[in-house]
Simulated scan of single mutants.
Amino acid sequence: MTNPLFYAKILLFGEYGIIEDSQGLTLPYSFYKGALKFSDLDSDFEKESNESLLKYANYLKDLELPEAYKISISKFQKDIRKGLFFDSNIPQGYGVGSSGALVAAIFERYSVKTYLPEHISKDELKDLKKIFGEMESFFHGKSSGIDPLICYMNLPILIENKENVNKVLIPASEAGKGAIFLIDSGMTGETGPMVQIFFEKMKTEGFRKTMKEEFIRYNNACIEAFLKKEMTPLFRNLKSLSVWAYEHFKPMIPESIYKVWKKGLDTNAYYLKLCGSGGGGYILGFTKDYEKAEKMLEGFHKEVIYRF
């Protein structure tokens, strides 16, 4: 029996915005991955994973899923008794989709009907997003279903709005001076509390207005420019997005990152943005000159995810 690997994901654009109907763009990230496996559960990690799968199976048992997307809970529970666990190196609380990969792996193995990502229609994508949202709500309280969908499809996905998602081609990565990279803030972030802060902010009219008129405009313009590989408008809008986040998403920016975030804006050497909900985990960086940015960000662990 093969163990399909499910990769982590990176939300390049759209954090928080997708809650308010902005566009989003996500990519699979193969550096981190997870797969369902069997073992004698000798290690604490395997034992804990197996126990949490059992809790999760109980949650899924009570979910009313449509016929076409039903999951064989009895088969899942039987495998849990046999020593099933999720073997993953995807860090939790880093905004790269640890629970998304788990949901995708479970659906792939236990869904009664088989779906092949390359043959999935736009309507099925919409349905799967909804199903995955319900399945992932166990971990986050409320989920859009986007993370598991990306992990499941293992393809770049353009989030067009709250309802619609589509497969998309992104320009090939090439060996240039520019880069998109991840910075490790050195601390984990919890999605729940961060999302709560966002919803509190959304109660004020001023914030709602700037979210709609500025954040969403910059965010969507970044996506359009990136997909067309137009670097000048991309970096112009990235700077606006980074300034906006620095002013309005302060609580979501890890303390270790404050100063270097501002430094990027002051020097235009690089621009930073949240990767996922923030509060910790990874931060995304964009630069036209990675060598220069790397020197300025000395002391931080960095991973390049795309070159141009």
Rank of each mutant, 00 (worst) to 15 (best):
Ile71Gly: 03
Thr188Phe: 04
Gly95Thr: 06
Asn58Ala: 07
Glu303Gly: 00
Lys130Trp: 13
Ala57Thr: 06
Gly141Phe: 05
Leu284Cys: 06
Glu136Cys: 08
Pro117Ala: 14
Phe38Gln: 02
Ser240Thr: 00
Glu255His: 09
Ile131Ser: 07
His140Trp: 08
Gly100Ala: 09
Cys222Val: 10
Gly281Gln: 03
Glu15Pro: 09
Thr114Val: 12
Glu190Asp: 11
Ala35Trp: 00
Tyr56Ala: 03
Lys129Ile: 04
Trp244Leu: 09
Lys82Val: 01
Lys130Gln: 12
Leu60Lys: 02
Ile157Ser: 07
Leu5Gly: 05
Phe86Lys: 02
Pro254Arg: 09
Glu48Val: 08
Ala225Leu: 04
Lys229Ser: 13
Tyr32Arg: 04
Ala104Asn: 07
Met194Lys: 14
Gly280Val: 06
Thr188Tyr: 03
Ser52Leu: 11
Ala57Asp: 08
Glu214Val: 03
Leu5Asn: 09
Leu169Arg: 11
Glu298Met: 05
Phe38Val: 01
Met194Pro: 05
Asp127Met: 08
Ile183Gln: 00
Tyr282Asp: 01
Ile150Val: 15
Asn268Phe: 01
Glu108Leu: 01
Asn3Trp: 00
Arg307Thr: 10
Ser88Asn: 10
Gly299Gln: 08
Phe31Lys: 14
Leu116Ser: 13
Tyr69Ser: 07
Thr210Met: 08
Ile19Val: 15
Ile146Asp: 00
Lys126Ser: 14
Leu238Thr: 03
Gly192Thr: 07
Ile253Asn: 04
Gly24Pro: 06
Glu200Arg: 14
Gly178Asp: 12
Ser111Val: 04
Ser49His: 10
Phe6Gln: 02
Asp127Glu: 14
Trp244Arg: 12
Gly100Ile: 00
Lys162Cys: 03
Tyr56Arg: 04
Ala105Gly: 04
Gly186Ile: 02
Phe207Asn: 07
Glu46Met: 07
Phe235Gln: 02
Tyr271Phe: 15
Leu63Arg: 01
Leu41His: 09
Phe132Thr: 10
Ser39Gly: 14
Met202Phe: 07
Lys302Met: 15
Asp79Leu: 05
Pro233Gly: 09
Lys37Ala: 14
Phe45Glu: 12
Phe199His: 15
Tyr270Thr: 05
Lys37Met: 08
Tyr29Trp: 15
Lys288Met: 10
Lys82His: 12
Tyr218Ser: 10
Lys212Asn: 13
Pro117Trp: 02
Leu12Lys: 04
Val260Leu: 10
Ile90Cys: 08
Glu67Ser: 14
Glu136Lys: 05
Val195Arg: 12
Ser256Gly: 13
Ile170Met: 09
Gly145His: 08
Ser242Val: 05
Tyr94Asp: 03
Ser121His: 07
Lys263Pro: 00
Leu102Glu: 01
Ala101Asn: 05
Met135Val: 06
Ala101Met: 06
Tyr69Asn: 06
Tyr7Trp: 09
Ala57Leu: 11
Glu205Cys: 02
Gly264Ile: 00
Ala172Ser: 12
Thr114Ser: 12
Asn166Ser: 15
Lys259Trp: 06
Lys126Trp: 06
Met211Ala: 09
Lys288Gly: 05
Ile253Gln: 05
Lys122Gln: 13
